[in-house]
Computed example of a mutant assay.
Amino acid sequence: MSAPAIRALLVDDEVLARLALRQALAAHADVEIVGECGHADEALQALAALAPDLLFLDIRMPGMDGFKLLHQLKPQALPMVVFATAYGQHALRAFDASALDYLLKPIDQARFDQAMARVRRHWQGFQSPAATAPHAAHLQRVSVRVGEHIRVIATERIDWIRAEGNYVEIHADGASHLHRETLSHLLSALDPARFLRIHRGTVVNVERIREVHPLFNGNAEIVLRDGTRLDLSRRFRAGARSVLGLP
């Protein structure tokens, strides 16, 4: 089975700049452009409606700039981000905003291809997080800081995990703990037979799942034993189907 296409949204107030991105992406058959936006307000609507995997984003636009746009998004809804701008002085701030890369206009194809290689490495972590080390021992404990102390949590006690930028929020035994590690990196160390990715920013312990409620458009809602309700996105429905035996 072929890997799913990377669904991209282009956001730039200049039509020619969006055309340049389209031309650069023409060499990447695994990317599907799902939309274009000329300003941030339009982009917010498109992000909510289309849920793209990859966002090419300009910084200086009329009204809300690219950084303010990202601040409007919940961390678990944040796609992979590549900035494409004419201004080089914002690179450090861009990476602080968890951008994968920072391209300067005019777009150079070789440099663009390097950025796409980075995107693909990150995307492969989404699609097959355990593929890089199939025979490695799975993580048994996670140490999180609680005030001045370190708390050790057995991974089997984890109910679910949510991405928070470069952190994860680990929910276990009725409490939540913020831990400095990306979701993809943590997931690559967890047992794939126990932990299931149900959304770009959400992982659940399958032993905690009580019910699955199908919704429209291929999405669903997962209900845990403690009553927590989590979204199962259409993109991860196939994986959940095989693990949970869904129809």
Rank of each mutant, 00 (worst) to 15 (best):
H171L: 06
E42C: 07
R237H: 14
L54S: 02
V152F: 11
L92F: 15
L244C: 15
G66I: 11
F236G: 04
L187H: 15
S143Q: 12
Q109L: 03
L92S: 03
L47T: 00
M116K: 00
E211D: 14
R157G: 11
C37R: 04
S188F: 09
V144W: 04
E36N: 05
S2G: 00
R60C: 10
H185P: 13
A8D: 03
A130G: 15
R225L: 11
R120L: 03
A27I: 00
F216C: 05
N166R: 15
R180L: 09
A3I: 03
A5M: 13
Q76D: 06
Y87N: 07
F67A: 07
I209W: 03
Y167P: 04
D191Q: 11
A40S: 15
H179A: 07
A29C: 06
E181Y: 11
L92Y: 02
E156I: 10
L183A: 11
I158N: 03
C37E: 04
L183T: 07
L55S: 00
G88F: 02
E169S: 14
A86D: 08
L47R: 03
E32P: 04
L187G: 04
M80A: 02
L69D: 03
V223M: 14
G66N: 14
L73A: 05
P75M: 09
T155Q: 12
T228F: 06
R180T: 04
R145M: 13
S188L: 14
R234H: 09
G218I: 02
V243Q: 15
D191S: 15
R18E: 01
L246K: 07
G218D: 04
F216T: 10
I161S: 13
A189H: 15
E36R: 00
A220T: 01
I161T: 08
S98I: 02
S128H: 15
L103V: 05
D113G: 02
A137V: 04
M80N: 01
K68Y: 05
R241E: 11
S233T: 08
V11P: 00
I161N: 05
A8V: 06
P214V: 02
P192M: 09
G245N: 05
D41M: 12
E156H: 14
E42K: 06
Q140P: 10
F195S: 02
I170C: 03
V243E: 12
A20K: 13
R151M: 12
I158M: 14
K68V: 11
A97H: 03
L103I: 04
Q109G: 09
L25Q: 01
E169M: 10
I222P: 07
S176T: 13
G38N: 01
L224T: 10
A8C: 07
L47S: 05
G201V: 06
Q45L: 09
P75L: 09
V206C: 12
H177V: 13
R234F: 04
A43F: 13
P192W: 13
I158W: 10
E164Q: 15
Q114I: 05
D159G: 07
D13T: 06
K105C: 12
